[in-house]
Design a protein around this nucleic acid. Structure first.
Length: 418
RNA sequence: GUGGUCGUAGCUCAAUGGCAGAGCUCCAGGUUGUGGUCCUGGCUGUUGCGGGUUCGAGUCCCGUCGAUCACCCCA
C-alpha cells in the first residue's frame, strides 16, 4: 500500500472536526477584533522568498521548490508574510489604514518532523499594516491573548514573553556595535539558554561584549520601552498574561520593534505563537513601491493541538465543540411508508435540522440503536398509523403521537426552546 | 543533514529463539413496531519490506522504508 508522505497528515472525520474547531475559533476572535480575512496562493515564485532571505539561506533549503512545466522556478509557501507584502504592495492605495488582516492557511517546509513540527501545517496569521502606534502593538497582543483564552487556556497555562528589538539595538549601538556586531550579538542572545557560556563568549569576542553584559542588560529590563503597550493591555485587564522578557529576540533579522512569543507555562512545548513589528519589510519586499509599517504574528495548529490535549479545560472545550449534533432520526417502522418518511426527512432538513434515516430496510430496534449512536435528540417514527406519526424525545423517552402536518410546527417550538 | 528509540489485526497491546493471541472497534444475530447495558457468532496478519544466523526467527544480526524524540534551525 502506498503510504502518505512523511510530515503530511490525513484528516479523518474526527481530525477534520478538531481542525474546524481551531479554525472556527481563530476566525471568530479575529472577527471580534475587526480583522478581515484574506488568502493567497499556495504556490509562489521562488524569487519571492529569495529576496527576503539574501542573508540567511536556511529557509531556502527548507523550501519545497521545483521548476514547473512552463520553466518557472516556483515554491510552496513556507510562510505568509512575503505573500502579504506582495498583495499589499499591489493594492496599497485601495485600502484605508490601518489595515487589519488575518488569514488561515497551510504552509510547507521540507525538514525533519518532530514534536510540534510537520512538513505541512496550518497557521493563523494576523497583521496590522499602516500604523506605528504602540496601540497597534497592544491590539495585536490582545488578539493573541484572547485567541488563547478562547481555546480554554488561562494565565496558568500560557504566558506572552514580551521583548523589544529596538531596545536591543539602542543598547548595542551605545556600546559601539556596528550592524554585523548587532547581528552576532542578537544571535547569541537567542542562544543564551541553549549554548554554554564559553562558546558564546568566543562568538562575541569581536563585538567587545560578553555573556555577562547581555545578561545584565536582560536583567535590567527596559520598562520605558514597554510602558505604552503594557498600559494599553492593563486597561483591557490583560496584564496578567504578559511578562516583559528581553531574552526573547526571535531569529528573524527584519524585526524593528516589539517582538513576542507565547509559551506554555510548563515549557514542555516550543513556542505556540510568535511575532513582532517589522516596519521596513513591506518596503524592502516591494522594491519601495509600498512603504507600510506593520506588526503581526503567527500561530500554528500543531503545537496548539498538543497544548489543548495536555490542558483539561481546553480539551473539554474541544470535546464540547465536537459533540454529535444530529437533531432528528427518522425511524421507518413500516417499509411501505418510506416515501412518506422521505417527505418528513426533507421537511426536517428544510427546517435546518440535522436529520438522518436508514438507507436500507432495518428492524425498528436497530434503527433506534443507530439514532443512539448518532447522538440524535429526537426520533420520528413513521409507520402504519400514517398520517399519524410519533415524535420521541430520546433523552426522556417521552413519546407523543401527532398528525404529520403538525410535526414542523412542533419541532420549531423545540428548536426555539433549545 | 546527525544521533537515540520503536515497527505484530482497523486501534491499544501480548507471545522465554519452539502452534501468532487478547481487549476494543467493525459486521451479523438475540423469534414479526422502540435505543445506551448484556449475550452469541463472525471478519481482519506475507509479524513494515529485503537479506543473514539457526533444526527452528515476531524474537538475534545487517540493510532499507516508516514512525517518534532530540540535535541543527525556526519564517
Amino acid at each position: 500500500m502506498i503510504q502518505g508522505l512523511p510530515g503530511f497528515r490525513d484528516f479523518f472525520p474526527e481530525d477534520c472536526a478538531r481542525r474546524n474547531h481551531v479554525v472556527a475559533t481563530w476566525r471568530e476572535i479575529s472577527r471580534r477584533y475587526g480583522f478581515v480575512e484574506f488568502d493567497g496562493p499556495a504556490l509562489e515564485s521562488t524569487d519571492l522568498y529569495r529576496k527576503k532571505n539574501e542573508a540567511g539561506a536556511e529557509i531556502l533549503e527548507q523550501l519545497y521548490s521545483f521548476t514547473d512545466r512552463g520553466g518557472r522556478e516556483v515554491a510552496l509557501r513556507p510562510e505568509m508574510t512575503p505573500t502579504l507584502a506582495r498583495m499589499v504592495a499591489a493594492r496599497e492605495k485601495h485600502y484605508r489604514k490601518p489595515m487589519k488582516w488575518f488569514c488561515v492557511s497551510n504552509f510547507f517546509r521540507h525538514e525533519r518532523q518532530q514534536k510540534g513540527r510537520l512538513r505541512e501545517f496550518l497557521q493563523f496569521n494576523a497583521d496590522i499594516l499602516g500604523e506605528t502606534s504602540p496601540q497597534a502593538d497592544a491590539e495585536i497582543l490582545a488578539l493573541a491573548i484572547d485567541l488563547m483564552r478562547s481555546f480554554g487556556f488561562t494565565a496558568e497555562h500560557f504566558v506572552v514573553r514580551l521583548s523589544d528589538r529596538k531596545a536591543w539595538m539602542d543598547f548595542l549601538q551605545s556600546r559601539g556595535c556596528d550592524e554585523a556586531a548587532c547581528r552576532t550579538t542578537l544571535a547569541c542572545a537567542d542562544k543564551l539558554e541553549r549554548e554554554p557560556e564559553e562558546k558564546l563568549n568566543a562568538k562575541l569576542a569581536a563585538t567587545g561584549l560578553t555573556v555577562a553584559d547581555l545578561k545584565a542588560f536582560i536583567a535590567a529590563g527596559s520598562p520605558e520601552a514597554f510602558a505604552p503597550v503594557l498600559e494599553a493591555l492593563a486597561a483591557r485587564g490583560l496584564s496578567g498574561f504578559v511578562q516583559p522578557d528581553l531574552s526573547i529576540v526571535r531569529g528573524l533579522a527584519y524585526y524593528t520593534g516589539v517582538v513576542f512569543e507565547i509559551f506554555d507555562r510548563s515549557k514542555n512545548l516550543r513556542a505556540l505563537a510568535g511575532g513582532g513589528r517589522y516596519d521596513g519589510l513591506v518596503k524592502g519586499l516591494s522594491d519601495g513601491s509600498a512603504d507600510l509599517p506593520a506588526i503581526g504574528f503567527g500561530m500554528g495548529d500543531v503545537v496548539l493541538g498538543h497544548l489543548i490535549d495536555e490542558t483539561p479545560a481546553a480539551a473539554e472545550k474541544l470535546r464540547a465543540a465536537l459533540a454529535a449534533s444530529t437533531d432528528v432520526f427518522v425511524v421507518i417502522a413500516d417499509e411501505s411508508r418510506r416515501p412518506e418518511a422521505l417527505q418528513i426527512v426533507q421537511t426536517c432538513r428544510e427546517l435546518g435540522l440535522s436529520t438522518d434515516f436508514p438507507l436500507k430496510p432495518a428492524k425498528v430496534g436497530k434503527q433506534f440503536q443507530e439514532a443512539e449512536h448518532l447522538g440524535a435528540t429526537h426520533a420520528v417514527v413513521i409507520g402504519q398509523e400514517w398520517p399519524q406519526i410519533k415524535l420521541k424525545h430520546l433523552a426522556t423517552r417521552a413519546e407523543e403521537s401527532l398528525d404529520h402536518a403538525a410535526l414542523a410546527p412542533t419541532l420549531k417550538t423545540y428548536k426555539l426552546h433549545s
